[in-house]
Simulated scan of single mutants.
Amino acid sequence: MAVDPVQASLNGRFTYRPDRGESWRILTGEDPVEGDCEDYALTLIWLYEARSMLRFWWGLITLKYVLWHCTGPGGGGHVVVWCRGRGWTDNIQRKMVPNLPPTYRRRFPYILPTLLLKFGLRPLLSRR
């Protein structure tokens, strides 16, 4: 699948930077942004939903988007996002694919209470 303009825009500004802790965030800046796999997935959802937090959360509640914890190509923990009607993507592939490559192993989806907890505890868990 081709990269759509929304994802291409994020790809052109995004640089991977691992967390020093567990800090999930949406990268709202227009300039180049840095983050990890969760930040990429959350930011992409937010951009697809026209930068609206209401639409962002509604997309997660209605399972239009599902964040999955998986084992990534290097064998470590990783997050990918499934987008209904589009496919799978992450900060490594940086494009939508109909199926995850065989080097990825899905472990579990992040359900809404977990997502709320990750955002709610962000100030306590962040060590940036």
Rank of each mutant, 00 (worst) to 15 (best):
A2R: 15
A2I: 10
V3S: 12
D4A: 10
P5M: 10
Q7R: 09
A8K: 14
L10A: 05
R13D: 04
Y16N: 03
R17N: 07
R17Y: 04
P18E: 07
P18T: 00
P18K: 07
R20Q: 13
G21Q: 01
G21A: 06
E22W: 06
S23L: 00
W24T: 00
L27M: 11
T28Y: 03
T28D: 05
G29Q: 08
G29R: 01
E30P: 05
E30R: 10
P32M: 01
E34I: 03
G35Y: 01
D36E: 04
C37G: 09
C37S: 15
E38Y: 05
E38M: 04
Y40S: 00
Y40H: 09
Y40C: 00
L44P: 05
L44T: 03
L44F: 10
I45P: 00
L47G: 00
L47V: 02
L47Q: 14
E49P: 02
A50V: 09
A50G: 08
R51Q: 14
S52C: 07
M53Y: 08
L54D: 13
L54F: 12
R55Y: 11
W57Y: 13
W57K: 01
W58Y: 11
W58T: 09
G59C: 05
G59H: 02
L60Q: 03
L63H: 07
K64P: 06
L67P: 00
W68V: 14
H69V: 13
H69M: 09
T71W: 12
T71L: 13
G74D: 15
G75A: 06
G75M: 10
G75S: 08
G76I: 01
G77F: 06
H78T: 11
V80K: 10
V80Q: 10
W82H: 15
R84H: 15
R86W: 14
G87W: 06
G87D: 07
T89S: 11
T89C: 10
T89E: 07
D90P: 05
D90I: 04
Q93F: 04
Q93K: 15
Q93R: 15
R94W: 12
R94N: 07
K95L: 11
M96L: 12
M96F: 15
M96V: 05
V97N: 10
V97H: 04
P98H: 09
P98T: 10
N99A: 11
N99C: 13
P101T: 04
P102G: 05
Y104K: 01
Y104L: 11
R106A: 15
R106H: 11
R107H: 10
R107C: 03
R107G: 08
R107N: 12
R107D: 13
F108P: 02
F108D: 06
I111F: 08
T114E: 11
T114V: 07
L116W: 14
L117G: 03
L117C: 09
L117R: 13
F119S: 01
R122E: 12
P123Q: 05
L124W: 12
L124F: 15
L125M: 06
